[in-house]
Design a protein around this nucleic acid. Structure first.
Length: 720
RNA sequence: GCGCGCUUAGCUCAGUGGUAGAGCAUCGCUUUUACACAGCGAGGGCCGGGGGUUCAAUCCCCUCAGCGCGCACCA
């Protein structure tokens, strides 16, 4: 029998194979579940679906994306081979704030600024920018071997998706789960937008804690510069020292002169901290804002003394125009001069945590903004049912949604317990405009991506006439077939940003959990355990790696030794090791093919006792691999396959069979050939989800009648 | 402050209530017609410390130490 591998280069050359193979797959149409061979009518068609976490269309794919491709493609290819109607739906995220930040930097380099460009023009520029990135990312996904259904691909700014997002917004509004108003928000003075609770990071800082005289009282504060915005002094109602002042107006002296201020009692004031008395600055402190909300009748309206750029405004008198830290220093000096500061008491080593922007590290300036939309997390909707938070917690507690690894469920519950209402207003141009006549704000990007699993399925084949129809009275074939999806596979660091929101919004909008299982992979580190980032210069470009070692090798390196939830370490030697493995597969396959002359597939093999043992052994392997994949232990399955192929099949079986291939005993030779081919075929199938390119290429060379593509061959399960 | 992890061979990581595992690296030997991106062989570990449960603990419980992470936070 003829063989082709014989003529090829000795070391396996992935470059010559991978693009060609991907083109064959894509052309076959089998990425689309509708084109897959149907099971006999007697058997019920099972489905399997994964919605791909849509990569941000503001750059190119990094090694973290390669992990999700490797893991999800394993599941997808396994289920496809098992005969399930398998859908992997790709997409891209406009990634509102993140993309705005990236684009701001680009503009900065060009000497431009988003605040000087007309909004429409900027939006068009950013649209072109993201569309170009999206194209690049699609090709990168192809390079990685992602067997996703491109015909169903969605972008978060597609018209139909936006329409669905608006309808969910309407529903939330009608259910009383939205409120808007003048609210205090986390304001980033650099990026000029408000941020949600998960978009701020606390950083420990040392700042002086000052003690200042307030009439008959003394109080402690870090923020001298906000004192012009004080609208009350608060004490604990149980504090005997100050109880007599409650309800009184006390006369105070500041650097701006004398004035009067009300003393109020609030239980949140800690008697033991500082002096037990605090200044209340509702316009610049979230906790103080809450105090004001509780004591509106006793206090004047909040007074904003810092503007959106982090500079003192006209209410700060002579300090107007100064940045916060400059103003603080100046005020400190002036207060000392005037004897308003008990300087000897100042704690210069006061450690506290300060909220900063998670992107740029700039200290967040809490500000009161108008027309801010918030989603209520802990209140019940008017139409009945549980709060967004409670429904989500229940779904996980009841096991409707499972986390892998399970420990993340605890982290999830802990966060949900402390969850705050969600500010979904962003003051940037890049995003979905909030349907509110009084604002140009856009939605927090996670408000749309939080709806992604049901939105992309409801948006399929949605004709323009149906576009307007409310999703809550409408369904699609895809939604019926594939929702809830089977697995949401993503990185653990976006549990709160994304996973929690998908669970809450999915349950709310559809009444069903958006997925049955959340598989969380870790963040890739370098050999020094540092996170990979462009600024550190330790990033690994997946395309560069693929160019040298091949996509199969990269995928294996990312899967083996990578248990869920742990942060894997990746380095070149590891990838090289799996390149070597790919070559081992290639060489062993070459050997089998080179020794097939005279092989008759129809002849009944006369197997020896040890041959039969080997077949038993491989039956056991099939079972084990299947079980490991089903239980999400991809790292173990990959390692086992590696070990079997290399150290059992290549080192032991092939070596021991060589003499039999040379002998003239035709029957025994047939048996040996039969054994080799059977084992090779089974291994290629089992390895296919992990190393799809090389296995498909070798499969194409095997002498098999009525051969299909390996990607849709039946997953091995029946014993010989 | 509340909470979650991790600690196993030089490195990266699996693992199970019953005599410790893999890959890489190391050290020998081998250029044998699938493969030197290789083969054959070898060395290497009080499974972080202490205590407990058990016939038996790397595994379960307690405790200590080191490392990492999440949440919260008051001026």
């Amino acid at each position: 029998m003829k063989n082709n591998l014989n003529n090829l280069d000795k070391p396996y050359n992935p470059k010559e194979t991978e693009d060609k193979i991907y083109a064959i797959w894509e052309k076959s149409g089998f990425f689309n579940p509708d084109n897959l061979p149907k099971k006999p009518q007697t058997k019920k068609q099972k489905t399997f679906s994964i919605i791909m976490p849509p990569p941000n269309a503001n750059g190119s794919l990094h090694i973290g994306h390669a992990i999700f491709v490797a893991l999800q493609d394993i599941m997808i290819r396994y289920h496809r081979m098992k005969g399930d109607k398998t859908l992997w739906l790709p997409g891209a995220d406009h990634a509102g704030f993140e993309t705005q930040v990236v684009y701001d930097k680009k503009l900065e380099k060009e000497g431009r600024s988003r605040f000087q460009i007309p909004a429409d023009q900027l939006r068009q520029e950013m649209w072109d920018f993201t569309q170009a990135n999206k194209k690049t990312m699609e090709n990168q996904l192809r390079k990685l071997g992602a067997s996703c259904d491109w015909s169903r691909e969605k972008f978060t700014l597609d018209k139909d998706i936006v329409e669905i997002v608006y309808q969910t917004f309407e529903k939330l509004k009608n259910d009383g789960l939205l409120y808007k108003g003048k609210r205090i928000v986390n304001w980033c003075v650099k990026h000029q937008t408000s941020l949600s609770e998960v978009e701020i990071k606390y950083q420990e800082r040392k700042d002086p804690l000052y003690y200042i005289k307030y009439g008959p009282l003394e109080l402690a504060t870090v923020r001298l510069e906000t004192k012009f915005g004080d609208t009350a002094v608060a004490i604990n109602p149980k504090d005997k020292r100050y109880r007599k002042y409650v309800g009184e107006e006390i006369e105070i002296e500041t650097v701006l002169g004398k004035s009067k201020i009300k003393v109020i009692a609030d239980e949140t004031v800690d008697i033991n901290f500082g002096t037990g008395a605090i200044k209340v600055t509702p316009a610049h402190d979230p906790a103080d804002f809450e105090i004001w909300q509780r004591h509106k009748d006793e206090m004047p309206e909040p007074k904003q003394v810092i503007d959106r750029f982090g500079k003192m405004n006209e209410l700060a008198g002579p300090y107007q125009g100064l940045k916060i830290m400059e103003a603080r220093k100046k005020i400190e000096e002036d207060m000392i001069k005037k004897g308003l500061l008990n300087y000897s008491k100042t704690d210069h080593h006061y450690k506290h945590n300060v909220a900063t922007c998670y992107k740029c590290g700039t200290i967040i300036e809490p500000l009161i903004l108008d027309n801010q939309w918030f989603v209520k997390m802990t209140e019940k909707p008017h139409s009945g049912g549980e709060s967004l938070r409670d429904a989500a917690v229940k779904a996980v507690k009841s096991g409707k949604i499972k986390f892998i690894p399970k420990r993340f469920e605890k982290i999830f519950f802990h966060w949900m317990k402390n969850i705050k209402d969600w500010n979904i207003s962003r003051q940037i141009v890049w995003g979905i405009k909030i349907p509110d006549e009084n604002t140009t704000d856009v939605f927090d990007t996670w408000f749309s991506s939080g709806q992604w699993p049901f939105a992309v399925l409801l948006a399929q084949n949605r004709s323009s006439s149906k576009l307007k129809k409310n999703i809550f009275d409408y369904t699609t074939k895809d939604f019926e077939e594939f929702y809830p999806t089977d697995v949401m596979e993503t990185a653990w660091d976006i549990i709160f940003f994304w996973v929690a929101r998908m669970i809450m919004l999915g349950l709310y909008a559809t009444g069903k959990a958006p997925f049955k299982c959340v598989y969380l992979h870790g963040l890739i580190r370098d050999k020094e355990r540092q996170k990979m980032s462009k600024s550190k210069g330790n990033v690994i470009d997946p395309l560069g790696v693929i160019d040298i070692y091949g996509a199969d090798a990269l995928r294996m390196a990312l899967v083996v030794g990578n248990a869920p939830g742990n942060d894997p370490i990746i380095y070149e030697e590891k990838i090289r090791g799996y390149r070597n493995f790919a070559n081992k597969i290639w060489q062993a396959s070459r050997f089998v093919l080179m020794n097939l002359d005279g092989f008759n597939p129809k002849a009944k093999p006369k197997l020896t006792l040890s041959d039969k043992k080997r077949l038993k052994e491989i039956n056991k392997l099939k079972k084990e691999i299947t079980k490991l994949i089903e239980s999400f232990k991809f790292y173990a399955a990959a390692e086992k396959l590696y070990h079997y192929f290399w150290h059992i099949f290549a080192d032991k079986i092939i070596e021991s069979i060589k003499p039999r291939l040379r002998e003239n005993n035709k029957k025994d030779r047939q048996a040996a050939q039969h054994l080799l081919l059977e084992i090779l075929k089974t291994n290629l199938k089992l390895l296919h989800p992990f190393m799809p390119f090389i296995t498909e290429e070798i499969w194409s060379k095997l002498p098999i009648k009525n051969k299909k593509l390996l990607m849709i061959e039946q997953w091995p399960k029946k014993p010989f």
